[in-house]
Nucleic acid binder design. Sequence first.
DNA 1: TGTAAAACCTATAGTAACTATAGAGTCAAG
DNA 2: CTTGACTCTATAGTTACTATAGGTTTTACA
Lengths: 129, 129
Amino acid sequence: MKIGELSKTSGCSIQTIRFYEKEGLLSDPERTEGNFRLYDVTALKQLEFVKHCRSLDISLIDIKRLIDLKNKPEESCSSVNALIAQQLALVNKRMKELKALKNELQQMASTCNSDNTIEGCGIIKSLDS
Amino acid sequence: MKIGELSKTSGCSIQTIRFYEKEGLLSDPERTEGNFRLYDVTALKQLEFVKHCRSLDISLIDIKRLIDLKNKPEESCSSVNALIAQQLALVNKRMKELKALKNELQQMASTCNSDNTIEGCGIIKSLDS
DNA sequence: TGTAAAACCTATAGTAACTATAGAGTCAAG
DNA sequence: CTTGACTCTATAGTTACTATAGGTTTTACA
């Protein structure tokens, strides 16, 4: 299939597919005589792997590492495990930050009574302090 | 004070201060004869306002809006309120995403028994599906 | 007073992970 | 044989900074 079809079946935009290829996350595809990219099911699977990793917010660099690891099936999978654990730690950290953020925003929002002028606005006041 | 001192007292890097100025978040400071920026307490307060907004993950564009609103003290503060509410909605959305993400990562991590080879690694398998 | 270091200046490029555009070539249908 | 859909490469833009290069100004010390 050509890139347009791969894009539709995978749900990735054409530009993103080309971008992943340039970044080395997808192997260079065959080309038609007219230089169009030609993909098969293997390519689709590769792309879906990348997509799944991205949906877990794994960085492109780490995805590359995972792909490299996949190609060494006999090695220990402890590095895979470590990578996922690290990703989990990152997510936990961000969640903590977001919670604090949410608290402050909620408290700020509660200090605003919307009939008021900006001059007396509790939100602006708390941002000023 | 000069930019180095403002940087230290505010905790913002010198480059960031100059960047905020360029983006219109800080008013253009006075200059010495030798073209060095000169700041007073007002500038420090402006910068702290921006910093506080950023700590709430408010975008530079929205901070600019808030600054504009601050300069119209007689208007209704409902737009300020709306902006904060919108920010809160964004944070809530991200938290939801992160929770889903955390769940999947945790489940994946649990499928790995670290003595195993990559070939049989449950993590890679779940990323492949 | 001379000079060297520290602080400052502007302008530009790099970061992450894409998205969007320009300008050109290729292919299928009518 | 031409039109429109599809594809190609290369480049610029996005956000909020950070880092660098190459130059100027000020300050401190001998």
